[in-house]
Nucleic acid binder design. Structure first.
Lengths: 133, 133
DNA sequence: ATAAAAGTTAGATAGCTTCTAATCTGTTGA
DNA sequence: TCAACAGATTAGAAGCTATCTAACTTTTAT
């Protein structure tokens, strides 16, 4: 039971149950971009008393409170990313694996305004494959 | 039965059955970014003899032959886009609605190479909401 | 015309996410 | 401390989306 995680949850008005702390301890510190299923498998290793419903509830709770981001980049499954500050993503065409790219990895210049809409965020999505070498 | 669509399918080695032409007539010309379910509902209006399996088969076939693109931008459902040339997308946070943005709507400058990976494509994803006005 | 290949169908199946109702846990105030 | 209430968790059911299957129909080629 990580005290820092407990404090962080409490600071966001989240009651720090054992299950929530276990989920948060993993998903807020990983760089694996896990799916809900992956979170369930991983966390169950350290806390066997855990249901899938709780995993989904907790993930959605963390997303609602802004501690976690939900990404729909690869077809077919949603993954989670604890880096909520602006950054870009690279998606492996073959494996679907997602990698974070720092904000300054891409120079984005002028963005044309879209009449009638307000832009909240921008990200660049790169797709490709692992090199031969 | 649109003759141009028939020719286009044949030119890509696709046998032009009534069902496939009906699906293609809609999905290759729409700017609605429909989901598979939406395609099914729409096309069934003009061709009632149509099963969902055929819709999925045909959509996947069109994607495989490069006539259509599959987009995973909003959580929860995949949509299709007949514009296969490079362009960007705007996603409405509230409705999930997707809009195409022309390639030159955003100036993308330098892109840092990713060691060990080859970049195949790049797109900018903008998110926001409809304006008050 | 006929046989082989390809396409379509309804229904079954599989995977992911949410919902439900019951149970359990934590918190609060006397 | 302890009762009572709110909140959290659970297993299983249910809802969706997408794919698979096996039978049937259509098309193509001979």
């Amino acid at each position: 039971m990580n005290e820092a995680t407990v404090d962080r949850l409490r600071a966001h008005g989240i009651q720090a149950s054992a299950q929530r702390v276990a989920v948060a301890d993993y998903v807020l510190f990983t760089d694996e971009h896990p799916s809900a299923e992956q979170v369930y498998q991983r966390v169950r290793g350290s806390l066997p008393v855990l249901s899938k419903a709780t995993v989904y509830n907790t993930l959605n709770l963390l997303v609602r409170t802004g501690l976690l981001r939900e990404l729909a980049l690869a077809e077919g499954h949603v993954v989670f990313d604890p880096r909520v500050e602006p950054h870009h993503h690279f998606v492996d065409d073959r494996t679907g694996e997602v990698r974070d790219l720092p904000w300054d990895a891409v120079d984005v210049g002028r963005v044309a305004p879209i009449p009638g809409y307000r832009i909240r965020e921008l990200q660049v999505v790169l797709r490709g494959t692992r090199d031969a070498g």
